[in-house]
Design a protein around this nucleic acid. Structure first.
Length: 567
RNA sequence: GUCCCCGUGGCGCAAUGGACAGCGCGUCUGGCUUCGAACCAGAGGGUUGUGAGUUCGAGUCUCACCGGGGACUCCA
């Protein structure tokens, strides 16, 4: 298991020493070191590999020209084996160039790290829960929930790579009126199969999958539920139906390669008494008001009070009265206090953004540090078919399920497509285009690089090369070879970035760039040669190709995608 | 009316407050009898919606405006 310190952090540490030494030597007057020393990857080759603008910011404090400061600091930066040179560039940049020989020497190290290459110690073992999807179990998974699934699952993988202990959780909304409405919907369809007329509930689910469930119920239970007490039948069919839907949800998500450690039942919050305990705690703190027959959460941060328990005049059945917010508060207590997660990450659709301040206020009221809750709000996915928007909701008719899509184009293009954009932009998912363009999806560009390497390795074996022979990294001197290794060396930074900014999409950008650099290497450097004088070079390049293959596979796997040997 | 997100080449999107704003698709040109052409090389295409401000430095931060999407129920 390899854990790396990102190069930018190593360079920042060098600069820190330089800043310190420049003061003690008197080259610079005394000043407080900046808390963070920013180091960027250079965008232009002429600027080296990494650049720091830190001296520009110090100019004001020191009353000196940034260029002068940079020169003083550059003099004081200690030598390091991985740095070939430190240059000062106007108006005051410090530019660092990695030593080519050192870069080449990292190739066997990356190869040996295998799929642990890129891991960093950011999380230092903190326990994090990522709660995602959590779609109502009253219908199959849609493409909108698929975005949630892909973001949550990839983020969880990134956090694991960053050194957190991660649990993936699905919150099952199995409490309240949904069960009854769902059960009543099934019962109405079920009775119809026997020619009996039972009214379809007003808030029911008219979609065809309910009719299919009714047919299954008929096959499984016969006419049993027609003779039972109506309420008992509704409840039994509701519980049974939700369990069946959940089976389907689990299958659908598994098709997308998404798996959960825990399926947490909302109902259990009430059965365990946690809900009442939470309510009592809020009441003690003075956060509960009663008026109009309802129970309200009152907090100075909120403009309006929020209902926790609806009034009997509005909702007749007691078990239907607690609101979603009420459950969410009890659930939050369960997460961070009872189960003690250091961080609870919520992956929510942007339509829930209004709920964030309420849950945060509740956390404060319960004495929980708000920073332990992280909300990732992703924008919606609109589904287009023939240029027309397809409106989907579980309580309406029309429906495009994730399953249909996965069956048609497979999980990899879907995951990549939903992952390439930042969570902040809406996605128009054009069904016709998705199917038609699946050949051209950038996912295949990345997978092709992996496959191409596999092909070359097969060729090398045919030519009599053994792949496990260590290559001589000093033979890797071509710019395209070194550029490829440099990109691999950046993975720890990408994982750090993705984990701190909660930005899983940056993996797709990196994967594409890495693939492009492999293709460039492949173009410029013939890998397999049987000429006797090129055996050693071939072995070095095979080592590089294998390292690149591992890193590509690592990134694809972080994104939940396949790294194929052939395609 | 209040709140959230977006506005970047024809289209779809990247870019941690840093230097000359990148990539894919599409368009044009060129490259396979030697490791996989699902690839590569080159060309064309930009006042980053508009206007102010903060900063040594703004696509990025602040304010106003314009345009698009979403949320503001004792819904789930």
């Amino acid at each position: 298991m390899t854990i790396s310190v990102p190069l930018r952090e190593q360079i920042a540490a060098l600069i820190r020493v330089g800043l310190q030494d420049a003061q003690t030597s008197g080259a610079l007057p005394a000043f407080d070191l900046p808390e963070i020393i920013s180091v960027d990857q250079s965008r232009h080759e002429a600027h080296g590999d990494y650049a720091s603008p830190v001296c520009m910011g110090l100019s004001r404090v020191l009353h000196r020209a940034p260029l002068q400061i940079a020169q003083a600091v550059a003099q004081s930066i200690p030598a390091a084996d991985f740095i070939a040179q430190v240059e000062v560039a106007p108006p005051g940049y410090l530019n660092f160039t990695l030593a080519n020989a050192w870069v080449a020497r990292q190739t066997p190290i990356i190869l040996a790290a295998g799929e642990s290459w890129g891991n960093v110690a950011l999380g230092s073992g903190q326990r994090v829960q990522v709660e995602f999807v959590s779609a109502n179990p009253t219908g199959p998974i849609t493409i909108g929930s698929a975005r949630n699934a892909v973001i949550g699952d990839t983020l969880a993988a990134v956090l694991e790579a960053a050194g957190y202990t991660v649990e993936r959780e699905y919150y099952v909304n199995d409490g309240g009126s949904k069960v009854r409405n769902f059960g009543a919907s099934i019962l109405a369809r079920y009775a119809h199969l026997f020619g009996v007329d039972v009214p379809f509930p007003e808030q029911g689910y008219p979609a065809t999958y309910v009719t299919e469930l009714a047919q299954r119920a008929q096959a499984e239970f016969g006419a049993r539920y027609l003779t039972q007490d109506r309420d008992a039948a509704i409840h039994a069919l509701g519980v049974w139906g939700i369990a069946r839907i959940l089976d389907g949800v689990r299958d659908d998500l598994a098709q997308l390669r998404v798996h959960f450690d825990t399926w947490f039942s909302e109902k259990s919050l009430y059965e365990s008494g946690l809900f009442d305990a939470m309510l009592a705690k809020l009441r003690d703190g003075g956060y509960i008001l009663e008026y109009g027959g309802a129970t309200w959460f009152h907090h100075p941060d909120l403009e309006k009070d929020a209902v926790l328990i609806r009034s009997p005049q509005v909702v007749p059945t007691p078990e239907d009265r607690p609101t979603y917010l009420a459950s969410d508060i009890a659930y939050l207590w369960n997460k961070v206090v009872l189960r003690g997660f250091d961080k609870a990450i919520y992956v929510w659709g942007a339509d829930h953004h209004g709920d964030v301040p309420r849950v945060q206020a509740a956390a404060k009221a319960l004495g929980v540090d708000v920073n332990r809750l992280v909300f990732i709000l992703y924008q919606m996915v609109t589904l287009l078919r023939g240029g027309q928007e397809v409106r989907m909701s579980k309580s309406s008719g029309e429906f495009v399920t994730l399953r249909e899509l996965v069956d048609e184009i497979g999980p990899d293009p879907i995951r990549f497509m939903l992952l390439t954009r930042t969570v902040d932009v809406t996605i128009d998912f054009d069904l016709d285009l998705a199917v038609e363009q699946s050949d051209r999806n950038p996912v295949y560009y990345v997978q092709y690089a992996h496959t191409r390497i596999a092909g070359v390795l097969r060729k090398a074996v045919e030519a009599g090369y053994a792949l496990d022979v260590p290559g001589d990294p000093t033979l890797l001197t071509h710019p395209s070879e070194l550029a490829l290794v440099r990109k691999m060396l950046a993975l720890p930074e990408i994982i750090t970035l993705a984990a701190t900014a909660m930005a899983p999409h940056s993996l797709t950008v990196y994967a594409t760039e890495l693939a492009a650099l492999f293709h460039a290497f492949y173009r410029d450097c013939r890998i397999v040669s049987t000429a006797p004088e090129e055996v050693a070079l071939t072995q070095a390049r095979l080592m590089l190709a294998r390292a690149a293959q591992h890193v590509l596979a690592r990134v694809l796997h972080l994104m939940g995608m396949d790294a194929p040997e052939r395609m």
